[in-house]
């Protein structure tokens, strides 16, 4: 096998192996999904249905002053981002056929996933900002 061919082979193996990810990804998607259903109903209900339905700085500040709420929001952020990006990953694996495009999109997904997680974490754990 020529070097070029070998590289192409390794690359296609990598892309294939990171495609749908196998049974662990499958299981994680279901577990995080189950968790998100429970948590999102609470989240939506508390923010939009109880009281005036207004989310003000004071309302959020009051909630985020409680470490338990910080944990709740961090868990939500973690599971939701993981679940969402793992879902997009599978969609890309299904529809994007060329390796170079897959690599580009996967890289963009990883990078934006990390950035969004960092931004969300700063918002939740960094609050109040002094």
């Amino acid at each position: 096998m020529s070097d070029e061919k070998k590289q192409e082979h390794t690359q296609s193996m990598w892309v294939r192996n990171t495609g749908t990810g196998g049974s662990r990804t499958w299981l994680f998607q279901r577990l995080t999904g189950l968790f998100i259903v429970l948590i999102i109903l609470l989240h939506f209900g508390i923010n939009h249905l109880i009281g005036t339905g207004e989310v003000t700085y004071d309302v959020v500040a009051n909630r985020l002053s409680n470490p338990l709420w910080k944990c709740f929001d961090m868990a939500f952020l973690t599971f939701a981002l993981y679940h969402g990006f793992a879902g997009v990953w599978v969609v890309v694996a299904d529809y994007v056929q060329t390796n170079s495009w897959r690599l580009a999109i996967y890289s963009a997904l990883i990078l934006s996933g990390i950035l969004l997680y960092a931004l969300g974490t700063i918002t939740i754990l960094g609050f109040p900002f002094k």
């Binding site: 700085y57 952020l77 969004l116 931004l119 969300g120 700063i122 918002t123 900002f129």
Partner: peptide, 10 residues
């Protein structure tokens, strides 16, 4: 995530 990050700006 972007919208809620406005918390950081007061």
């Amino acid at each position: 995530i972007f919208v809620i990050h406005n918390l950081a700006y007061g």
